[in-house]
């Protein structure tokens, strides 16, 4: 447990404190829970709009990241792993983007999350941008995969804020299914 992040006078406090994580996997190497955990690096924590921009301005844009890199922005106290208590009954919306679109979409995604535009209470756990060889993937994780009202609302907000081309495919996957797929 880390100490609370201090918000100085004049700064604009966010609804939640967030952590920025980075991970990179050697291409071709099988992902396991253990090496995934070992590859996760905590980059920083922020609790205000100003602190967010302080980090974000120095963070590489998805376009400039090497393949198999992931940036995770999760609420403080939630590790970006399926096994975390906040995630284990949850799932994620997956949006696959062609190269060149992701930097703008990722920024819009984060701003919507930090600004509480999803209107789903505590349901959002965090968001990930995954840079892959031929595409980039944005995913939004929520706590309760079974809550179709919430997952529907997240999908609708995502569509609106990402301003996606009409043919963009969106897919929902429960972490339980991801876990089963990984261990089978």
């Amino acid at each position: 447990i880390l100490p609370p992040v201090e918000v100085k006078p004049g700064e604009h406090r966010l609804q939640y404190t967030y952590c920025i994580w980075f991970s990179r996997r050697a291409p071709g190497k099988q992902a396991t829970t253990q090496n995934y955990d070992q590859n996760l690096q905590l980059i920083g924590r922020f609790a205000s709009v100003e602190q967010f921009w302080g980090f974000y301005s120095y963070l590489a844009r998805p376009t400039h990241l090497a393949s198999h890199s992931d940036i995770h922005i999760f609420k403080d106290g939630i590790k970006p792993m399926w096994e975390d208590g906040a995630n284990k009954n949850g799932g994620k919306w997956i949006v696959r983007l062609r190269k060149g679109l992701s930097s703008r979409c990722w920024e819009n995604m984060i701003l919507a999350m930090l600004g509480e535009q999803f209107l789903v209470g505590d349901e959002i756990c965090g968001a990930v941008i995954s840079v892959r060889f031929q595409e980039d993937i944005i995913s939004v994780w929520n706590r309760t995969a079974q809550d179709t009202l919430t997952t529907g609302r997240i999908r609708d907000t995502l569509k609106r804020v990402l301003n996606l081309p009409p043919n963009t495919v969106m897919e929902y996957k429960t972490h339980n299914d991801s876990l089963k797929q990984c261990t089978s």
């Binding site: 700064e11 967010f52 701003l111 600004g115 509480e116």
Partner: peptide, 21 residues
């Protein structure tokens, strides 16, 4: 309780704030 909601344009304006070091 009350939620702290920010619009995208407001957040973007804050990008150049001197406090965003």
């Amino acid at each position: 309780g009350t939620r702290i909601i920010y619009e995208r344009n407001f957040l973007l304006q804050m990008r150049n704030s001197p406090l965003a070091r």
